[in-house]
Measured scan of single mutants.
Amino acid sequence: DEEIEKWIETLLKRNISLRVNGKDLEIGSEEFKEWVEKFIKEV
């Protein structure tokens, strides 16, 4: 979905790490990609 890709790009540009389930996810890491894929499937 384009919306999500733009959102991810924005996050990448800002180099933010997300806190997911109490863990810091490094943007661009494998864990982050897995989380994004799960997130996309749920939406």
Rank of each mutant, 00 (worst) to 15 (best):
G28A: 06
K6P: 03
I16R: 00
G28Y: 04
V43H: 09
L12C: 11
E26C: 14
E42L: 15
K41S: 07
W35Q: 01
N15K: 07
K33F: 15
K23V: 09
E42S: 10
T10M: 15
E26P: 09
I27T: 05
V20N: 01
E34D: 12
L25M: 10
V43T: 07
V20L: 11
I8N: 00
R19P: 03
L25R: 05
I8E: 01
E31K: 09
N15Y: 14
I40S: 01
K13W: 11
I4P: 05
I4Y: 09
N21F: 07
I16E: 14
E34V: 13
E31Y: 09
E5R: 12
D1M: 14
K23S: 05
E37F: 12
K41Y: 04
L11Q: 01
E42H: 08
V20M: 05
D1Y: 14
K13T: 06
E9H: 05
E34H: 08
E31R: 07
E34C: 10
K38M: 08
E42N: 10
E30V: 10
S29K: 07
V36M: 10
W7A: 02
E2Y: 11
V20G: 02
V20S: 03
I16H: 04
V43D: 04
E5K: 13
F32I: 03
N15P: 14
V36N: 00
N15E: 12
E42M: 15
G28R: 04
E9W: 07
E5S: 11
E3A: 13
I4C: 15
N21L: 08
E30C: 12
V43A: 07
I4A: 04
L12G: 02
T10N: 13
G22I: 04
K6W: 11
N15G: 14
K23N: 06
I16G: 13
F32P: 00
W7H: 00
D24A: 08
N15F: 13
R19Q: 09
R19F: 05
D24G: 02
E9D: 05
E5M: 13
S17E: 04
D24H: 05
K6F: 11
W35T: 01
E34W: 08
L18W: 04
L11W: 07
N15Q: 12
F32W: 10
E31W: 09
V43G: 06
E31N: 04
I8R: 03
T10F: 14
E26S: 06
E34Q: 13
K33Y: 13
E30H: 10
N15I: 15
E9M: 10
W7C: 15
E30P: 12
R14Q: 15
K41Q: 10
I16F: 01
N21E: 08
K33D: 03
I16P: 09
N15M: 13
I4K: 03
E31G: 10
I4Q: 03
D24V: 13
N15T: 11
K41M: 07
E34I: 07
F32V: 04
I27Y: 08
E34A: 14
D1K: 14
E5Q: 13
E42Y: 15
I40Y: 08
E2N: 09
E9A: 09
I27K: 03
L12V: 13
E31H: 09
V20R: 00
I4H: 02
D24P: 10
I40G: 01
G22P: 01
I8M: 05
G22K: 02
F39T: 04
K41A: 07
I40L: 12
E30D: 11
K38Q: 11
E9R: 07
S17G: 08
K38P: 00
K23C: 13
E2V: 11
E37M: 14
L18F: 12
L18P: 02
L12S: 05
L18Y: 01
S17M: 05
V36L: 13
K41G: 02
L25W: 03
R19H: 11
G22E: 07
I4L: 09
E37H: 13
K33S: 04
F32Q: 00
I40K: 07
N15S: 06
W7Q: 00
G28F: 11
E3Q: 10
N21W: 03
E5G: 08
K13A: 07
S17Y: 04
F39W: 12
E2W: 12
L25I: 10
S17Q: 09
L25T: 02
K38F: 08
L11E: 05
L18G: 01
I27P: 11
K33N: 11
K6G: 05
W35F: 08
V43R: 07
E34Y: 10
E3C: 15
L11Y: 06
D1V: 14
K38T: 07
I27V: 13
S17P: 14
I8L: 13
W35C: 14
R19V: 13
I27H: 05
I40F: 11
L25D: 02
K13G: 09
E2M: 11
E2D: 11
E3G: 09
V43Y: 14
L12P: 03
N21H: 03
D1L: 15
G28V: 04
V20H: 03
V36I: 12
S17C: 14
I40W: 09
S17V: 12
K41R: 11
K6R: 09
K13Y: 10
I27D: 02
E31L: 11
K41P: 00
L11V: 08
E5H: 12
K13N: 14
K33H: 12
K6H: 12
I4G: 03
D24Q: 10
I40M: 09
S17A: 11
L25S: 04
L18I: 14
I4T: 04
F39H: 05
S29M: 10
K6N: 04
L12Y: 03
L12I: 09
S29Q: 11
F32R: 00
I16A: 07
E3P: 08
R19L: 12
K6A: 09
K41N: 06
K13D: 15
D1I: 11
S29T: 07
G28D: 08
G22A: 01
K33A: 06
E3K: 12
E30L: 11
N21C: 05
L25F: 10
D24R: 06
I27F: 08
N21Y: 05
I8Q: 01
W7F: 08
E2A: 13
E37S: 14
E30S: 08
